[in-house]
C-alpha cells in the first residue's frame, strides 16, 4: 500500500525525479519506473513525522530540479 504519482516526461525530467528520490530516500521507500511518456513513482513506508507533506514536497523538489536542470543545459 502506498502512494502513486505519475509525472509527465515532457514536464518532469527523469533525472530530476531521481534527484528528488535521492533527497527523500531516508523518509520513504521509492520505486521509480521511467516509461516513454510518464515516470511512475510508487511511494511507500512514509515516515510518519512527514506523512502529511512528503508527497507534496517530493513533487516540488522534482519540479525545482527539472527547472534547474533545464536552465543548466539550455544554450547561453
Amino acid at each position: 500500500m502506498g502512494e502513486h504519482i505519475s509525472f509527465d516526461r515532457s514536464l518532469y525530467a527523469p533525472a530530476a525525479i531521481e534527484s528528488a528520490v535521492a533527497a527523500y530516500h531516508h523518509l520513504a521507500t521509492f520505486a521509480v519506473i521511467v516509461g516513454d511518456d510518464h515516470t511512475e513513482v510508487q511511494i511507500s513506508e512514509i515516515d510518519a513525522r512527514v506523512s502529511d507533506v512528503l508527497i507534496d514536497a517530493f513533487c516540488n523538489h522534482a519540479l525545482y530540479e527539472t527547472v534547474v536542470l533545464g536552465r543548466a543545459t539550455e544554450p547561453s
Binding site: D8, S10, C59, N60, L63, Y64, V67, G70
Partner: peptide, 22 residues
C-alpha cells in the same frame, strides 16, 4: 510557453505545493 510556466513555478515553490500535469 513551458519555460514561462517553469519560470513562474520556480518563483512559487517556496510558497505553494505545485504539481504539473498534461
Amino acid at each position: 510557453p513551458r519555460d514561462a510556466i517553469y519560470g513562474a513555478a520556480y518563483l512559487f515553490v517556496d510558497r505553494a505545493w505545485i504539481f504539473l500535469t498534461r
